[in-house]
Simulated assay, not measured.
Amino acid sequence: MRPVLAAANSRRSVSKVTDAAPDDAELLELLDAAGRVADHASLRPWRVVALRGVARERLGAALVEAAGLAPDDHGASKLAGKPLRAPVLLAIVAVRTPEHEKVPEWEQDATAAGVAHLLELLLDEAGWGVMWRTGPHTRHPAVATMHGLQEHEALLGWLYVGGRPDRWRADRRRASDAAARFTTLT
């Protein structure tokens, strides 16, 4: 089987990861490859923010604020703990060029999402456990501020990255049923 096809067929989200994590050098190598997605007008309308250590705790606090919870409210500690599920979170940011004459914002967001998906595939192929996560507070101003987002940037979600657990199995992934989602017009 062709390598890219094999990697795509074996990719599976890993919801529980170990404390092992890729270092910045490995992430940059994979991100350099992921950044080669289709990109109309070569805008590079994306960036990635790595959250490690206490940055994940700051994100948890921002999520609690976005939910309108006080730190001692029921559910606040569970919400604050979500970013601690992986040793590194990669925030995927769409960097929009407003009113571009050729590339509408939705297409710029699609490019950023393409980078995220290809990066997820590359991380998986490199042996890391990875899962793309979002949630109801992804676009909240407190979360944007925590990430240092600018006016024309939008958070698309996070890739939670860590080591694959010993019991991880790639063969549990169900088929995509491509034939049911494919149409040919003539």
Score class of each variant (00 low, 15 high):
L59D: 08
E101L: 04
R85S: 07
A67P: 12
S77F: 02
A110Y: 02
S77E: 15
A67S: 08
L90F: 12
P45I: 03
G75R: 15
A61K: 06
H74I: 14
A61M: 05
V88D: 07
G75W: 15
L89R: 14
D73P: 09
G75E: 13
L51I: 06
P104W: 00
V49A: 09
R47I: 11
V93T: 12
L59S: 12
I92S: 12
V95K: 13
R47G: 09
A62H: 11
R85V: 02
G68W: 03
L79R: 03
E57H: 12
D109E: 08
P45M: 04
I92P: 04
E99V: 09
V64I: 07
A76L: 14
V103K: 00
A61Y: 02
H100S: 04
G75C: 11
H74P: 09
A110C: 08
E101R: 09
R47F: 08
G68Y: 02
P87V: 15
E99L: 06
A50S: 12
V48H: 04
K102N: 14
I92E: 05
A80C: 05
A80D: 04
R96P: 00
R85K: 06
R47T: 11
V54D: 03
P87S: 15
E101C: 02
V64T: 07
W106H: 07
V93R: 13
A76C: 13
K82H: 08
A80Y: 05
P98I: 04
V95T: 14
G81E: 04
R44A: 12
V95C: 15
W106S: 02
E107M: 00
V54R: 01
L84T: 11
W46H: 08
A94V: 03
K82R: 13
L90P: 13
P71G: 10
V95S: 15
A80N: 02
P98G: 03
L69H: 12
E107T: 00
P98Q: 04
A67W: 14
R96H: 11
K78T: 13
L59P: 11
V49Y: 06
K102P: 01
L84N: 11
E101P: 15
T97C: 12
R47N: 10
R96Y: 02
A80I: 08
W46E: 01
E57W: 06
A61G: 03
A91V: 13
A70E: 10
S77M: 10
W46A: 00
A94N: 02
A91L: 14
E101G: 10
L89V: 11
W106R: 08
P98C: 04
K78F: 10
R85N: 07
A61Q: 08
P87C: 14
P45Q: 09
G68A: 02
A62P: 10
A55M: 05
A61S: 05
R96K: 10
T97Y: 05
A70F: 07
A55K: 04
E107G: 00
E101W: 07
K102Y: 01
V48Q: 09
V64H: 03
P104T: 00
L89Q: 14
A76E: 12
E105S: 03
A70L: 12
A76I: 15
E105Y: 00
A94E: 01
A66V: 10
W46K: 05
R56Y: 01
A66M: 06
P71T: 15
L84A: 13
L63K: 07
V93Y: 11
R56C: 00
A66F: 04
R44L: 02
V48I: 13
G75Q: 15
D73E: 11
H74L: 14
A86I: 10
A66W: 05
L51Q: 00
A61I: 03
